Amino acid sequence: MSLPPLSLRARITALTAATAVLAAVAVGYTVAAADGDGRPAASAAAPGLTLDKAPGLYHASRKGNVLSTPYSPSGTETADGARSRKTGLSCNRFYASGGSAVCIANHPGLSQKTKVTVLDRELDTRETVVVGGIPNRARVSPSGRMVAWTLFVSGDSYASSSFSTRSGILDTRTGYLVKNVETLQLYIEGRRYHAPDVNYWGITFADDDNRFYATVATKGKTYLVEGDMRTWKARTLRRNAECPSLSPDGTRIAFKKRVRKGTQDPWRLHVLDLGTMRETPLAETRSVDDQAAWLDDSTLAYSLPGRAKGTSDIWTVPADAPATGPRLLLSDASSPSMVQGGG
């Protein structure tokens, strides 16, 4: 199974070295582990920095520091030399929307765990959840109410030659927590489906805080699913679609599609029109192992490996036919998240 920076990556066979391998995989496209006790740091925050007062492109550096950098659609305000402001957070993955943010970071202990920290618009902690696994994906709904995460895990009885994932959802308004979305009633191509190897990852929310999209994998196949929080059901929309990301206008989904067999550069970014179910390959022809983020209705951002080992860079590409190629936005950066003024 492949995943997303964090995706299900290609299948890894060295289960005897599970913790070490997973850690290396997680860092490859993301950032270093959180410091000390795994809590988001607060001492380095810029005075008065809030999601309202510091709109722009939020991202994580190689060392795990979350920064806010000015951004304009033309890119003229965003460059490696642009003035970035520290949030004081240290995260493997970060995402902000609707006046809320989520920071997921490695949590210390004998077993591999992740601390999920939900933050308000002042970047103060609202809630924390500790769950087993290695940080992989994080998303917040447009309203800021719903928070989701995906983690790498090992030890599932069916996963003798690959790692698995666990995805969770938190409703910050009601406090309702789903630690494992595998309890969803799943319908594959119209029929109720049960299997022990079902895995979900890469959740993305619609603006009604009820509908969401995700990847589900089973029997060596991946599907794009549409989920419903109220009924707790999910149905497949199409095959071969991973790491979905819903556009701000709610009409399209960016995803990575497997276009080559094997584990070497297998994916290409596409955009799916939900009205026509027509897909469009984007101008980025390199293999992108990430859950792309929409900076606006016409631009996608994503991470690719940097020149130096263990680093990554943020690139952008138009979310339409490949008329304009990809552009380097920030070096030594990952986990892009666009925050508009006013939270």
Rank of each mutant, 00 (worst) to 15 (best):
D156P: 02
G109F: 03
S154G: 12
P108C: 05
G133P: 00
A138I: 11
V140R: 07
Q112H: 02
T128Y: 03
V102C: 02
T114Q: 09
A105R: 01
L123N: 06
T128D: 05
P142T: 00
R121M: 07
C91Y: 08
C103H: 10
V131L: 14
V140Y: 06
G99P: 06
L151V: 06
I134P: 00
R93E: 06
G88Y: 13
R139F: 09
V131A: 14
G98S: 10
G98W: 03
T128R: 10
A96S: 08
F152Q: 05
T150M: 05
A138N: 11
V130T: 15
V130Q: 09
V147E: 08
E127D: 06
V131H: 11
I134H: 04
L110A: 04
Q112E: 02
T128A: 04
V131G: 03
G133E: 04
P142H: 00
F152S: 03
R145C: 07
P135L: 07
H107G: 01
D120R: 14
G88Q: 14
S160W: 11
F94I: 12
V129K: 10
V102I: 14
R166D: 00
S143A: 10
C91N: 12
P108Y: 05
T117V: 11
S154P: 09
W149D: 03
R126K: 15
A138G: 12
V147A: 12
P142L: 00
V129A: 04
L123Q: 10
T87S: 13
R137W: 10
T128L: 04
T128V: 09
P135H: 09
S160A: 13
R126M: 14
V130H: 10
V129Y: 04
L119V: 12
S100R: 12
S164P: 00
N106W: 01
Y158P: 03
P135C: 11
T87A: 14
F152H: 07
G98M: 03
L110W: 02
V130C: 07
D156E: 15
K115Q: 15
E127W: 02
A105H: 02
L123S: 08
S90N: 15
Y158N: 07
L110F: 03
L110P: 10
W149C: 08
G109I: 01
I134Y: 03
V130A: 05
L151Y: 02
Q112W: 01
S161P: 00
R121S: 15
A148D: 08
G109N: 05
Y95R: 10
C103M: 05
S157C: 11
T117Q: 06
H107Q: 04
L110K: 01
D156I: 02
G168I: 01
L151Q: 04
S141Q: 13
G132A: 11
R93I: 04
G109Q: 02
A159T: 01
V130L: 09
